[in-house]
Design a binder for these strands. Structure first.
Lengths: 341, 341
DNA sequence: GACCAAATTGAAATCGATTTGGTTATGAAA
DNA sequence: TTTCATAACCAAATCGATTTCAATTTGGTC
């Protein structure tokens, strides 16, 4: 059913019908009510593509998905979905072939110019992230989930990675640990950098020297958690505590410790970052996992909200949200023990 | 830059330019080459919304995302993305508020009628799934990931859940197990039903009575795996083996067994279904997990491929793919032991 | 050189809405 | 009674492409 046809059935002009449905004030309330009611009855719905062409709005927020298909991603999107379900906005997932800088920039450029989305959410930004410069230059509304140092104004939402890791590390130091290993995310992203800074500053605040042999970077997988932890623990001077970037990493660390006959919480302490997943909870691990916690889902919800505000006209330059991160102590952390000989 | 303007700069009509870029044969090769080249140079790209309005094609595949935000989902989408990255097609994720049947149907109806997507992928279908009837009736192209009994022709791709679980269960029986617990997915979806059938038929084939006390249904979480396993193991006549629906469930079972001082692989055997995640692998669990395996990512890739074929005109009625599932035996399964007293 | 088919190119209609710039009632003020 | 503001509605232009139908050019044949 087209507008023209529908309007004719109502004995009104397309103009009035369109206005009635879009809530313009120049239509009498009684007419509007009738139009709305009849639209439902006759099943008239404006053609989305015609509306988009005419208004220039799309009703979609773009998210670029790397190949990695990280488990965080689904949570973030679920969070976005929670917020967007009441709006008439959906999520466009754009696959990214390879994250080599050149193709990536091309992708963002095409996306921005193609008018397929009203706004873009940029994930895992790097310190000097050219995507941000590009989107700013193109005038495409965007929100950065994470932070960047780049000298271009941009709205962002981030969690306090540095503070979280500093607290976690300091806590371990307070427990007497001095050899604390750090299994961080992949190098390059700002969040990994921030966590690194938090880790180093905690050590330095307490006069402990940073040992590069105890620092590793890589994807958040059980596999890497195991491999790194295992190799650390097999060093002549093994760590007595771990700070880890994800729950999956923590699973790997647990496994490595067990495989060497070490007790988590007494022989080895572990604090990991928990993005809060419905299917795997820190509290349920054995022993329960001490964690820095921040809900990825909540971040998704809030990001969606902020993007909507952005599209409604809120100034991008005033959107900067830094979320504090909880530190929740459970059984996986304890005072340092004398080393085995 | 608009078509009209661009055409003028080239000294051609919009018609010819449009044809040149869309690859129509009525344009001389030399003209086409020039148009394509200039389009790149001057940065002309057809307005997506105008194209959509005119052609009725959208270049997007719709996927409805439940609130659960399951971890499988991200893998499936990553798989889709892998296939779609070379096409000019993206993925539209539509948030679903609450899965109560009525609102759900409304959502699918709106989605189908709104022309926002060219096709829809239906997930976790139920035996009598009205979504399928609806989409069929509306003439919206769709592909079912999973299967349904509904009396409406529909293209689908599914894995052999029944066969997988039958093999897994039979294998456990061959190892001497007779009390085999089944921790299945949520009731309602066909796949859970098929797995249930596979489980029961294996038992019955070997003359073992089904004990309803050993069957549980629920979300694929570590938490539920633990709770169910724990309650089963505390029964007067505990199971000596488990068949479980997911890796997360298996983690919970491992934990439950450990908490009771039971050795996985000797005291208790476990086989779980592994959707193949990059961040958590069955092989890496301790002890390594015997699993029925089928790549969720590969399914996503293939589903995207099939949808593209569908859109290219392939008949929906001839698309039925049933993927076999591997059974990979590792350390978590072993011959039954005499029960503790 | 005339003729005709094939190869190219264009003008204008079209997709289905929104919105600008009116026009017509209505009722209050002069 | 006239005037004028306001409320309510409408005709037609517009968004930016695709595509139908018609016009022109090209090249081969007689």
């Amino acid at each position: 059913m087209k507008l023209k046809e529908f309007a004719k059935q109502l004995g009104l002009s397309p103009t009035t019908v369109s206005r009635a449905l879009s809530g313009y004030p120049e239509v009498s309330e009684v007419t509007r009510a009738r139009v709305v009611q009849e639209a439902v009855r006759l099943g008239y719905r404006p053609n989305v593509n015609a509306v988009r062409l005419k208004t220039g709005r799309v009703g979609a927020i773009g998210v670029v998905m790397g190949r990695a298909g990280e488990f965080h991603f689904a949570e973030f999107m679920a969070g976005m979905a929670e917020r967007l379900v009441t709006e008439d906005t959906d999520i466009l997932v754009i696959p990214m072939a390879n994250p080599e800088s050149d193709a990536e920039m091309q992708l963002y450029r095409r996306l921005a110019e193609s008018q397929r989305v009203d706004a873009i959410i940029v994930h895992s930004p790097r310190p000097n992230d050219q995507r941000i410069a590009l989107l700013h230059e193109l005038g495409m509304p965007f929100l950065v989930h994470g932070r960047s140092d780049i000298d271009v104004p941009h709205p962002w939402l981030d969690i306090d990675n540095e503070g979280a890791v500093r607290r976690a590390t300091s806590h371990l130091i307070d427990l007497g640990h001095t050899r604390i290993a750090m299994i961080n995310g992949r190098q390059g992203a700002t969040y990994a950098l921030h966590r690194d800074v938090g880790y180093r500053s905690a050590l330095q605040n307490h006069g402990i020297e940073v040992d590069p042999q105890l620092i590793a970077n890589g994807n958040f997988t059980d596999e890497l958690g195991f491999r790194f932890a295992r190799s650390f623990l097999e060093q002549p001077k093994p760590p007595t505590a771990f700070v880890a970037g994800s729950m999956m990493t923590a699973l790997g660390i647990y496994r490595a410790a067990r495989s060497l006959g070490l007790q988590i919480g007494s022989d080895v302490s572990v604090i990991a970052h928990d993005d809060v997943f419905p299917y795997l909870t820190a509290d349920n691990m054995v022993p329960s996992l001490s964690a820095t916690r921040s809900s990825m889902r909540a971040a998704g919800t809030r990001c969606a909200d902020l993007v909507l505000q952005l599209l409604a006209g809120r100034s991008p330059t005033e959107i900067h949200e830094l979320w504090p991160v909880e530190l929740i102590l459970r059984e996986s952390t304890g005072p340092v023990r004398a080393l085995r000989t």
